[in-house]
Lab assay of single mutants.
Amino acid sequence: SPISQSQFIPLGEILCLAISAMNSARKPVTQEALMEHLTTCFPGVPTPSQEILRHTLNTLVRERKIYPTPDGYFIVTP
C-alpha cells in the first residue's frame, strides 16, 4: 500500500509564521503563548520540547530573523 507523504517544514519557519501571525493579531509572543499557538494552529505537527523551542528561538535571534523584547518576540522587518 502507498505511504502518504507529508510536507516537511523546518521548525524555524513554523515559528516565524506563528510569530508573524501573533504579531499581526497584537498577541504577545511569549514561549508559553507560542507553544499554545503551535498546538492550536498546527495540530498535525508534534509540539517541540521547551529546550528545542528555546534553542530554535535563540538561533532565529542570532540569524536576525526575530528579536526578543520584554513584551515578547517580534519579526525583524527590513
Rank of each mutant, 00 (worst) to 15 (best):
P2Q: 15
I3K: 10
S4C: 11
S4M: 12
Q5K: 13
S6H: 02
S6M: 06
S6N: 10
Q7W: 05
F8L: 05
F8V: 08
F8Q: 04
I9D: 10
I9E: 15
P10M: 14
L11G: 02
L11C: 01
L11N: 01
L11A: 03
L11F: 14
E13C: 05
E13Y: 15
E13N: 13
E13V: 03
I14Y: 06
I14C: 06
L15T: 15
C16F: 08
C16Y: 11
C16I: 12
C16G: 03
L17V: 08
A18K: 02
I19M: 03
I19L: 03
S20C: 09
A21Y: 15
A21M: 03
A21L: 02
M22C: 06
N23H: 06
A25S: 09
R26C: 06
R26I: 04
K27V: 07
P28L: 04
P28Y: 10
P28V: 08
V29L: 01
T30M: 06
T30G: 06
Q31T: 13
Q31W: 06
A33Y: 04
A33N: 15
A33C: 04
L34S: 00
L34V: 09
M35T: 11
M35C: 10
L38S: 01
C41S: 13
C41Y: 08
C41G: 13
P43E: 12
P43Q: 09
V45S: 06
V45H: 15
V45E: 05
P46D: 07
T47G: 04
T47A: 07
T47P: 04
P48H: 02
P48M: 07
S49T: 04
S49W: 00
S49R: 03
Q50C: 08
E51L: 05
E51Q: 07
I52P: 01
I52F: 13
L53P: 00
L53A: 06
T56C: 09
L57G: 00
L57M: 08
N58L: 11
N58T: 11
T59R: 12
T59I: 14
V61P: 00
R62T: 14
R62K: 06
R62V: 14
K65N: 01
K65S: 07
I66Y: 00
I66S: 00
I66G: 00
Y67S: 12
Y67L: 10
P68G: 12
P68W: 09
P68H: 14
P68V: 15
T69C: 08
T69E: 07
P70Q: 14
Y73H: 11
F74D: 10
I75H: 04
I75A: 10
I75F: 06
V76F: 11
V76C: 14
T77V: 08
P78A: 09
P78R: 14
P78T: 04
